[in-house]
Design a protein around this nucleic acid. Sequence first.
DNA 1: ATGGCTGGTAGAACCAGA
Length: 263
Amino acid sequence: MTHLKIASWNINSVRARSHIVERFLLEEAPDILCLQETKAHNDVFPRGFFEKLGYVHQALNGQKMHHGVATLSRVPLEEDLRHDWQDNGEARHVGVRVAGQFRLENVYVPAGGDIPDRNENPKFGQKLDFIDRMTRWGEDLREPTLIVGDFNIAPLECDVWNHKQLLKVVSHTPIEVETLERFRQSHDWVDLGRKFIPAPERCYTWWSYRSKDWTANDRGRRLDHMWASPELAPQVTRHQVHEPCRSWEKPSDHVPLVVDLAL
DNA sequence: ATGGCTGGTAGAACCAGA
């Protein structure tokens, strides 16, 4: 029996966050770290920084300025793939196979802009189309898979600090929730967050930078997720949201998620 | 009080995040 610990974190610039990434890797020691919003082209990605910490296997999909994902691992990775589910060249996905046993898909779903209307705001349409393409991919998926990342959607009423107030706010609109639910059904994905922290228990992974004290009103949303194929889900033995990271020095606005997998 | 902040890049009275 092998155990693997896998973490996912929207880091909001990998280069601006090395102090807290190092602290997290030393304290939590995941075998694999999936980062989103690295904001670094592959040419300037801090490969050596992660190699020194033991994460010598690296699958990168970065671009200049925005977006970007990276999967850093102590165990060998095979067959890295990069899907462009938005069909516009943005770097938002990298997928690998781990230990010859399962696929690990690292995804950064587009935020979708401010206005929840695809006619007034093309970015909102691109977000929905991204998830539709991901859904078609999921329908054909035959391997045990863990898909992790920033989905930029808080699906349940208890995934936001105020359901009624956020119904018209991008990330919690009914059309986004329905679109994400169709994706979930395409492969019978198991939402590990809610398997381990059942609704309606409070569970957030993101708090805005604009509040002086993120803990004061606790206006969070659960935007980051780890979903498992139905055959893989029973092998997940633990799931954690590392909320204290939101108070670390110069934090990301998202906190890391961690699962333990018994293989 | 859902933008009050933050990072990247340029050298902005910028863009994007969500």
